[in-house]
Design a protein around this nucleic acid. Structure first.
Length: 398
RNA sequence: GCGUAGGUGGUAGAGCGGUCAAUUACAAGAGACUGUAAAUCUCUCGCCUUCGGGCUACACAGGUUCGAAUCCUGUCCUACGCA
């Protein structure tokens, strides 16, 4: 039986785990390292498929939980799959809904991101813990829809079934991320459950015809603990996955080290996706640690909130000083926004609550990150990675 | 000219004797955002501050009171009605 996903390595770094390759999927190739754009609900917020195509990312990542709730995965199936539904012809991925176990469960209402050390025992958190949107059991996760309050139960098998309906090229096993604040006992318990779920995902997936044209990635968890990460990488490697995703819960400085440990264990000949990572400096770390693809909501979310990525660091376009700045968002940027509109105009759109602000800034931020990773790839191919990185970071951080 | 209702911080608009530097919303300023409950959220928003507090303020000027944005008198101004 032919593998739905195959991975070809074109060049490997001699002084890190970085590699340049190609993932062959039913909807075409992904030139890695590559940045996957997040379109949770089968849309990259504020962008048309034409605008997205013009930016030219290679992969789109949608979300199982969100599409299951609305419009329902049957609709995606009837439409002929995610690609047709969203008018996107290139490769796609779906996340399993595992992250929502975390974000709507233990992390709900805590005003914490994946990286903060905050949270803990304040009143707000205690109150929220009484009414989480997700509660975890051995068989799966009980969700209360954040949309209408209805009850749902997601299991590993159910997640895969939904992902079969959605029809992305790459689908992801159902897992449970943990918070950096969780005690090691809990992280160990969650990890072991994630492993049992991973096995069930593989078994269910392989029993269906979709496994001939959809590749399944297993998720490595384990928080910041090297022993747990090793155990997880070894176990997940032992299962019949087409590729791997590294899931997360890190303190910010742990990412590189943790991912290094994992990728030293994962088989080299299969692709590795670093879930949810997308800050420019983290992408360099991720590539050096041997990851092939990345995804992140940061470029689109920040865009909608006025935070613009530039080679000289992030700027907040709503700041007073940009109201009379008639230059582009970023000097020398070739995106549609920068070649067409000024900072002053975009600042005006934000101050006037005009929807076009979201579109213009999203175009720029997505363009920025997709091309950053593409440039990282090219620099590795050309043997100029170190100088590229050095010059990028010195400009970005100053 | 007479009558009525009013004049509160950038704006609208609460408050109607002490708990008021003054609810709230908007505007404004800054920050956050990493597998999207996010066109969201947080903080600041009279002046000064060693962050304890200090000072000046609710049209203006007087007055009553231990105490006034709140009550009284006068002045000025605004809206509506009648001349």
């Amino acid at each position: 039986m032919k593998n739905p996903i195959t991975f070809e390595i074109l060049k490997e770094s001699t002084d890190s785990l970085a590699r340049v390759g190609v993932i062959h999927t039913p909807h075409g190739d992904i030139q890695t390292p590559s940045f996957a754009v997040v379109g949770t609900k089968a849309t990259v917020k504020a962008l048309t498929s034409k605008q997205l195509n013009d930016i030219n990312p290679e992969v789109l990542l949608a979300n199982t939980y969100h599409l299951y709730l609305k419009p329902g995965s049957e609709i995606l199936k009837m439409a002929g799959g995610l690609n047709k539904f969203a008018n996107w012809s290139k490769p796609t991925m779906t996340d399993s809904g595992g992250f929502q176990v975390f974000s709507l469960g233990k992390a709900f209402g805590k005003n914490i991101s994946k990286f903060t050390d905050e949270g803990g025992e304040n009143e707000e958190n205690k109150r929220m813990e009484k009414a989480p949107f997700a509660t975890i059991g051995e068989d799966g996760v009980a969700f209360r829809s954040h949309i209408d309050g209805s009850d749902h139960f997601l299991t590993p098998e159910k997640s895969i079934e939904i992902q079969h309906n959605i029809g992305a090229d790459i689908i992801i096993a159902f897992d449970e991320p943990t918070s950096p604040n969780d005690p090691i006992e809990y992280q160990k318990e969650a990890l072991e459950r994630t492993h049992r779920w991973a096995k069930r995902c593989v078994e269910y997936h392989k029993s269906k015809p979709n496994s001939e044209f959809q590749g399944l990635y297993g998720v490595v968890q384990g928080g910041k603990f090297p022993d747990l990460r090793k155990e997880s990488a070894e176990y997940i490697s032992s299962l019949d996955f087409d590729g791997f995703a590294i899931g997360g819960s890190y303190n910010k400085n742990d990412i590189g080290a943790v991912v290094n440990i994992v990728n030293n264990i994962l088989p080299k000949d299969k692709p590795r996706h670093l879930l949810g990572i997308g800050e420019p400096l983290d992408l360099f770390d991720g590539v050096e640690a041997g990851c092939d693809t990345f995804d992140c909501v940061m470029p689109t979310r920040n865009a909608r909130n006025g935070s613009i990525l530039t080679k000289n660091g992030k700027i907040n376009i709503t700041n007073t000083k940009y109201r009379e700045d008639f230059g582009p968002l970023e000097e020398d940027c070739e995106c549609e926004t920068c070649t067409t509109y000024t900072r002053a105009y975009i600042a005006h759109l934000f101050h006037s609550d005009e929807l076009l602000s979201n579109t213009l800034t999203s175009i720029h931020n997505v363009h920025f990150l997709v091309n950053l990773v593409r440039n990282i790839r090219n620099s590795i191919l050309e043997g100029s990675y170190d100088s590229f990185k050095k010059s990028f970071i010195s400009e970005y951080s100053k």
